[in-house]
């Protein structure tokens, strides 16, 4: 189809382009510019060159934040994929009871992050929480903190598990939809050829689920990188900065530590990290697509 005028495609694209420029390109440009200033919103900004970046790298702060964020995301993505798939396989059965189970598991995904965080804070409390008390018994009396949320070694893992709990229902539903679309004839043919249940899963179901798994991994990765509410409510980045993830660190720099320039520099570094990850992901996808052809 050929446009009647050269500007027609641009007219069609204009609404999206305007939104993209106003809400994405311009803010990124402003953040990049502001990252070279020292500014607290209230007093005039002062040009400081690369001082904000130097300060972030000075004590390895940015590296720690990046590693923490990647660690959190790795647990959330791996946990959500595994648990979501396991749950999907478990509830892929007919009947009212299974429908109730499916709805119950999925309900966690519908609840707001704030409610989830408050609920888990209460459950993980080392002195009165249902889960926290058991964990404390398992960790023994010499554990350095009464609650896992107060222990720098375990707080991030605890937050990631909360993330997995919340997102597993979402992954389960997506996997379930794909599982139910796999033709029964394929599985029956494999069974007739003598394939064991594990072989059928490994060589028939899994390959067919791979595109879905990629989709779930990508969306979960995006969600995990956006983690804020759960950190804000459950740990405020502590203890000992053990749960200070990128988005929370940016919030803390700008709103609590009064440093717009430092927050902008952190934003740019986060942006750079996301770009790098997106490039890697794109490369992997292209390679996978090439192999498939």
């Amino acid at each position: 189809m050929t446009p009647r005028a050269r500007w027609h495609p641009w007219a069609m694209l204009a609404p999206s382009l305007v939104l993209l420029v106003v809400f994405f390109i311009v803010p990124i440009g402003v953040a990049a510019y502001e990252s070279f200033f020292s500014w607290d919103l209230l007093t005039p900004p002062r040009y400081v060159g690369g001082a904000n970046y130097r300060a972030l790298f000075a004590h390895g702060e940015v590296l720690h934040v990046a590693l923490r964020t990647l660690g959190y995301s790795a647990i959330v993505v791996a946990g959500t994929l595994s648990l979501g798939l396991a749950l999907a396989l478990l509830v892929d059965r007919p009947g009212a009871f299974m429908a109730i189970v499916r709805a119950s598991v999925f309900s966690a995904y519908v609840v707001s992050w704030v409610a989830v965080a408050l609920l888990w804070m209460w459950m993980l409390d080392g002195e009165s929480g249902v889960v926290g008390r058991w964990i404390r018994v398992l960790r023994g009396p010499t554990a350095p903190a009464s609650s896992v949320l107060g222990d720098p070694r375990w707080a991030l893992v605890a937050l990631a598990i909360v993330g997995v709990w919340k997102l597993a229902g979402y992954a389960m539903i997506i996997f379930l939809a794909e599982l139910q679309s796999i033709p029964r004839s394929l599985l029956e043919a494999a069974a007739l050829d003598g394939a064991s249940p594990w072989s059928r899963f490994r060589h028939v179901t899994m390959p067919l689920l791979m595109p879905t798994a990629t989709f779930v991994a990508t969306t979960t990765l995006v969600t995990s990188f956006q983690a804020f509410d759960v950190v804000r409510i459950m740990t405020q980045g502590g203890p000992a900065r053990a749960t200070e993830l990128f988005v929370y660190a940016i919030y803390e720099q700008i709103f609590l530590d009064l440093s717009v320039g430092r927050a902008s520099a952190l934003t740019m570094l986060f942006f750079g990290m996301l770009l790098a990850l997106a490039a890697v992901q794109l490369r992997v996808w292209r390679r996978a697509a090439g192999t498939a052809r």
Partner: peptide, 29 residues
């Protein structure tokens, strides 16, 4: 004063007490 409190000292108190960081090194920093 407020920046020193929020951005500089408070995170290091936790680093030292819960994370086991060296008090002298952290305060020097």
């Amino acid at each position: 004063l407020f920046r020193v409190e929020r951005d500089i000292v408070e995170p290091r108190l936790e680093d030292a007490v819960l994370g086991g960081g060296d008090a002298h090194a952290l305060m020097d920093e």
